[in-house]
Design a protein around this nucleic acid. Structure first.
Lengths: 338, 338
DNA sequence: GTGAAAGCGCTAACAA
DNA sequence: TTGTTAGCGCTTTCAC
């Protein structure tokens, strides 16, 4: 194994000079750096991470925490793999490694996070979910460990960093878009009314409707595991002669399509569907879904960038970072004016 | 920060004794160990990973390599997140950490793997895909770095460890099952005939058909991106009056369902579908898919277990580990005998 | 069965 | 601008 000493010897300098050159310290002359770099090249030197960690106290790596897999399907949403690769790509660029945390329960996760931190495995965390009274976030905050969450900030939680889209605006623009296509009887549908995300987007929907002097409908619940909601939703759509529905995500939109076909309603001829995420699901079945791309890559990149900033500056800098979204027009929305 | 020295002082022993107790060395008396453990408890001691890595030369962590994201959808298959959590869970139990590797190209990935290894970030790798002439596997093999691949072994590659299902047998049993439900005109469909996995399963299908004195049909190609194959497949199913198709995976099965409905064929009334993976896709739309569960958790667990064994024993021990599969009967196969 | 002591490879004062 | 030096926290021979 070639160490910093070997490089130093070959370059005819002191090991500390090599160390400094490595981090491109400005107190080393370009000439010396060049010499050192050449020596590194010649010898095929690669720094030993453990040694530098031990000496510097910095881990050069961050933890990425997945949501508790209480509902087993959640994790298999394409979103998580997408953001994981986005974060990893950004981390590579910045010479950081990432460690992942998964667990069955939030409690489990909390213990893992605590361990990772105490073991000095990571300097900070990206938490890929937000939940009320989440033990993980609480732990991180109480212990003043740098972290950023991906997802909607809860109300009242101010001194924490979040990366998210402007979900209210996105839902509002969804209404604008549908109205521009001639729709007026628009319904908002979600699989769970309690989720913060649902609430925020529903609020955006309400605002959007009101902006067009349309009366917003009550939130539509469609929980595939709860058969009641299915029937209710079906009749609601029929009786209110809904022409467009906004679905909380692509998967829900897919299920909605099937529900509608059961009621002999075709998409988009009878009912248009507009959804969010632009995930793989949007292009499985025709009609391909018109959906908002939430910029997963940007979410990942921003979260890491901000986290590293907090780590480097050793100071919490709570920010709400918002990532732009973009409409992907495909086949599930009909223009009623044509 | 509480170190091994603090523990030693409190327990009234030498740091080396603490270190030994930590690894439950048998050359330390139970009495001393108890004392030491108590001291650790009292002080809330947590070992510093970097220090132990540096001193021992062992990283206590392994790399998990995802397939190159050349086709962006591939990674979002639920399989990868599932196996990642399975591996991570197993790793937690064994006090190992995992580092992940992702990249756009195989070349990219190779460089990342090389770096991870040279930096002494990991002791070995789990490669979550198999491909012909894959630079990553080549690199690992040439440099005698412990690794195990998840997926079908290519022919002729003998001195490497793989974890996989017995895919030929699974396809053969799929035929058995369909025959037991009264089907005879059975078609095997795949999105890509060149993939090893396709070939192996197709071979199993052929064998299964022959075992029942049925003549196997040519492999059916259904590449959604290639419209020709869609028409061809549709007519094929019509003209041969196919009653059951075996689909390479759940996603394909879903697309197949839509194709069939386009031809006014209902699943399972007119055509039955049997697929593989038992992924999230199997339960999105009715009819829910009858599909083989490939035991992702076991795949992950076995791969890690075997890798750690190779690392610990410092000796390559090429093995083909096979993980059992199980049929999940749901709604997509009709019993023609009823 | 336990202690002493020399490192693992790198960093970061402090000097020069 | 560069060299000297003392660790970072743990492991592991080698003694006893």
């Amino acid at each position: 194994m070639v160490t910093i000493k070997d490089v130093a010897k070959r370059a005819g300098v002191n090991p500390s000079t090599v160390s400094r050159s490595l981090k491109d310290s400005k107190s080393i002359s370009e000439k010396t750096k060049a010499k050192v770099r050449q020596a590194m090249e010649d010898l095929g030197y690669v720094p030993n991470v453990a040694a530098s960690q031990l000496a510097s106290g910095l881990t050069q790596s961050v933890g990425v925490i997945f949501p508790p897999s209480t509902s087993p399907d959640r994790l298999t949403q394409p979103f998580f793999m997408e953001i994981l690769t986005a974060i990893n790509d950004e981390a590579k660029k910045r010479h950081f490694a990432i460690a992942i945390g998964t667990g069955d329960s939030a409690q489990d996760l909390k213990e893992q996070v605590a361990l990772m931190h105490k073991q000095k495995l990571v300097d900070g965390f990206i938490v890929l979910y937000t939940e009320k009274d989440d033990p993980v976030s609480h732990y991180l905050q109480e212990n003043h460990i740098p972290f950023v969450s991906v997802g909607q900030a809860e109300d009242g939680v101010k001194n924490r960093s979040f990366v998210d889209n402007d979900n209210a605006l996105m839902a509002q623009e969804a209404v604008d878009y549908l109205v521009s296509k001639g729709h007026e009887r628009i319904l908002f549908v979600t699989p769970s009314e309690t989720e913060t995300l649902s609430q925020v987007r529903y609020a955006g929907y309400v605002k959007g409707m009101q902006a067009h002097a349309l009366s917003p409908l009550a939130i539509g619940l469609f929980a595939p595991k709860n058969p009641e909601t299915i029937d209710q939703l079906g009749s609601l759509i029929k009786s209110h002669r809904i022409t467009a529905v906004i679905a909380l995500d692509d998967l829900l939109a897919l299920r909605l399509m099937q529900l509608l076909s059961f009621y002999d309603l075709a998409v988009p001829d009878d009912v248009s569907i507009l959804s969010f995420n632009n995930s793989l699901y949007a292009k499985i079945l025709h009609p391909y879904l018109t959906t908002y791309d939430i910029g997963v890559a940007a979410l990942g990149q921003e979260s890491l960038t901000h986290l590293l900033k907090e780590i480097a500056e050793k100071t919490a800098d709570p920010q709400q970072l918002v990532v732009p979204f973009a409409l992907k027009e495909r086949e599930s929305v009909r223009d009623l004016r044509k």
